[in-house]
């Protein structure tokens, strides 16, 4: 009896039934949950053993395990790790293409120089990265940090210096304020970061945005956008693209703008 059923299941899955037999079998399945399970398992085994097949499981959206997995995937911790993986991947790719092309470099350098020269002189229609930076950096993307009624003189002065482009002095005051408040105000990293960025100290700018990313500020996910601007201004375009893709994929702060900027860079 059981063997007979197994044979039928094989015939059904293998498409070896006549349309009538198939209809009859499906009716039987609809009334017999145990048979349905047997068919399901046989089907899964077939998929598993076939190297080019893959069994997609339609799990219930409310399944607690599934939900637990998805909640973790959406967590900040996971997003930060994902960004790190992409970054390492982008660096690896860059290094790889550098080393694989090294043998062509000697011959190519001259040609590239000439092309670069010509295109700089005659063909300058693509916006440079600096131009893009000025287009995409908007001061209103920076959260206001003087807002809590309790005015802090040091901070007010620092922001004033920042706004009048006196970045060196602004940095000093921001960092003094950071020491005094012992890191309890993470939005300060944004201002310090942009001051360094404007001064061309890209590493320090990145460090500050990383501090923001690892803080518990409500603005932490904005750090991705700020970092993309650092990469843009410092001509690290592959890294910039990587981070922009992440902003788009994860719908983070300024995802629309990120899409536009990525389009300009492609």
């Amino acid at each position: 009896m059981e063997e007979n059923f197994d044979l039928k299941i094989e015939a059904y899955l293998g498409g070896d039934m006549t349309p009538e037999e198939q209809k009859q079998f499906e009716e039987m399945m609809s009334q017999n949950p145990k048979l349905r399970e047997e068919v399901q398992l046989a089907n899964e085994v077939n998929h598993h053993l076939n190297d080019s097949a893959w069994m997609v499981i339609e799990a219930d959206k409310n399944d607690p395990v599934k939900q637990e997995l998805e909640n973790y995937v959406k967590s900040d911790e996971a997003i930060v790790l994902k960004s790190k993986l992409r970054q390492v991947g982008a660096n690896y790719k860059k290094k790889r293409s550098n080393s694989s092309s090294i043998k062509y470099i000697v011959g190519a350098v001259a040609a590239i120089l000439i092309i670069a020269l010509i295109s700089n002189v005659f063909w300058n229609s693509r916006p440079s990265h600096d131009v893009l930076y000025t287009e995409f950096y908007i001061e209103s993307d920076l959260p206001s940090i003087i807002k809590r009624g309790s005015e802090n003189k040091l901070l007010t002065e620092a922001v004033a210096l920042f706004k009048s482009n006196e970045y060196d002095q602004a940095i000093q005051l921001f960092e003094q304020y950071e020491r005094e408040t012992q890191g309890t105000d993470p939005s300060i990293y944004i201002y310090t970061g942009f001051s360094y960025l404007e001064n061309g100290n890209f590493d320090r700018a990145l460090q500050n945005f990383d501090k923001l990313l690892n803080s518990d500020s409500i603005d932490k996910s904005k750090a991705f956008w700020y970092k993309s601007l650092v990469y843009l201004k410092s001509d690290r375009i592959e890294e910039c693209k990587t981070i922009l893709s992440q902003i788009i994929d994860d719908s983070l702060f300024n995802a629309q703008k990120a899409k536009r900027l990525l389009g300009e860079l492609e």
Binding site: E44, H48, W54, A59, E70, V73, K74
Partner: peptide, 20 residues
Amino acid sequence: QEEEKHSSFILEQERWELFE
């Protein structure tokens, strides 16, 4: 969705490992 992509595959991979 990104999270759905990961959760589905993880569950499928767990099943794959059990069969294996």
